[in-house]
Design a protein around this nucleic acid. Sequence first.
DNA 1: ATAGGGTTAG
Length: 759
Amino acid sequence: MSRLDTIACNVHSLNQLRQFHAQIIQHSLQHHNYWVALLIGQCTRIHAPLAYTRLIFDSVPRPNVFVFTSMLKFYSQWGAHHDVFTLFDRMRRCDVRPDAFVYPILIKSAGKAATGLHALVLKLGHGSDQYVRNAIMDMFAKHGPIEHARVLFDEMPNKTIVDWNSIISGYWKWGHEAEAFELFNLMPERNIISWTAMVSGYAKFGDLEKARKFFDEMPEKNVVSWNAMLSGYVQNGFAEEALKLFDMMIDAGLQPDETTWVTIISSCSARGDLQLAESLVSSLDRRKIRLNCFVKTALLDMYAKCGSLETARNIFDEMGIYKNQVSWNAMISAYAKNGDLTSASKLFYEMPERNVVSWNSMIAGYAQNGQSAMAIELFKEMTTKEELKPDEVTMVSVISACGHLGALELGKWVLSFIKENSIKLSNSGYNALISMYSRCGSMEDAKKIFQDMPTRDLISYNSLIAGFAAHGHGTEANELILRMKNEGIEPDRITYIGVLTACSHSGLAKEGQKIFESIRSPSVDHYACMVDLLGRAGELDQAKRLIDTMPIKPHAGVYGALLNACRIHKRVDLGEIAACNLFELEPENSGNYVLLSNIYASLGKWEDVERVRGTMRARGVQKTTGWSWVEFGGKLHRFIAGDRSHKLSDQIYRLLEELRKKMRDAGYVADKCYVLRDVEEEEKEEMVGTHSEKLAIGFGLLVSEVGAMIRVVKNLRVCGDCHFAIKMISKLEGREIIVRDNNRFHCFKNGECSCRDYW
DNA sequence: ATAGGGTTAG
């Protein structure tokens, strides 16, 4: 017997546990409560798989209170709260009297719902048991209201150090720094746990200096204390600091445990440095580190973030049944971030149980890979199908998807959803809203969010400035960059791109020039903005000179800006130079060929138009056609040229026909090229189809219903032919029409367009 | 037995 006890003490891995289990069976002890309870206890300690442990539990015919309690503890640690209560019921049905040992486990599993248990526990007379008492107070400290925990704490006649530590952690959990600090000073004695709680509290609060101060001052440290400090650094983005501290820890002679490795591996992920990752793995091999599920998941994530998806997948597959939700989520998000949404979605539906993070990973994956509508669809599936509450992270992706679709009605519905479900927003939530309103053309709402949010960060400023840029509000963008400097927020690369674009779109050439000169080391994007600014202002030769003298190699954006300016100002010579460079830099981009041919067309050089089209055909460049999205009445309608899948198709095409007739009668020409040139029948179809028809389909739907403002969004390149159509509609219908084309807005009123330079 | 540290999503 004592030999078996010794083995039990040496169980550190699943393999060792299995050997121990085999010994038990060999001695025919698998039906004995004592040994089964001991086995389950070991399962809890090493995080053994749920199914395996259940098997052990089921082997005993009449479980006693010890077996039940150890199994309850196992379920509780696994987070299988439902199983905890099912087992508790079974325990009572089996006439096994629960003792005071059971209640702390139940209370912990019940979480917020333990309020009801409170009364039961008092009735049963366990209220004065120090463990039960602490479990209840700790529950309020963790789940709130913290004030309730404080009342219980104050009422306690003889508080243990555990009670003090519980309430201090509770205050940290709810962000009450002052109370945590006060109680820490008041407590009669402090142990290593009290000190560690202070370190991790300050670290989670983002105050790493104070955390480090407590860490340095603690009378004694163990691995947990070191881990708390290390994870503080990693989670606040100081991966280098963490690695430095890790070296100190080794020098201090401390043995890193699995948690330490998880932290260190994750600081490696943050760097995205495959070399560092591989040296880390070899050092894990050298030290013969046991890799538990947490460490393996961290490794998986590290490989994924360092760009080695296959290695990540290998680890995932090797984990077999020993992987948890986090492992699944890490793999799903790895695929989603890489744009492999098929693989991500396959895993997503394969995984046994999805949590908020699983949904968030998928929704974010769609939102970030240009599939905004899918992101929103999935969000709707989440809210209808699962009993899961979306959180702020979910909403940030959904808000961003609405912004990319220009779906203002939907965005407003999302905001009301947030309010109804009382989802608390932090800066990233508010910032997403600013971007959403900006993209939807509602600058007043964007400004209101910006003003009303408690604190503004760099991203808040950048989002609003980008909004002003898209709408050509140059003066306001300039005011904003001054304001942020006054508030002590340093503008970054993105800020300057925004302000320069805003100047460019509102004709503030001088202000733009000044801003450009104030940038310490302008990037190639800033040069592209300047070329755009000079080009739009008609200073094409100056723009060309800027390109010739810039210290960095120009990219496609720079020449693209020049080509666009050449189209506006009909400059063939420079246009050809720009196009020539673009054809080399991005031969597959059909837009460049179209732009050049439009320059020729505007000057009546039809042979050149034909030549460019010929080149395009010869190189096999396809004009990309995409879906068009039109929002109306809070719903998104999807179109593609010639598509008849929409339920209102017949009505739309009828209106389109009427529209064409009205336009012809009013003397408007639908497509300049199509009328002036004698083109083949096939090509005519294409030209009408890809532009004006799609647009008109959308308008058809909208005109047929009631609406004061129309937004056309996504994948719609507004060009000459559409312009005529929209002008017509704005006149015929007496409406204001706002069209979003990429990131520009065009306002049509009474047959006039307010965007002068674009046409 | 109760209190402190860990991996995934924006």
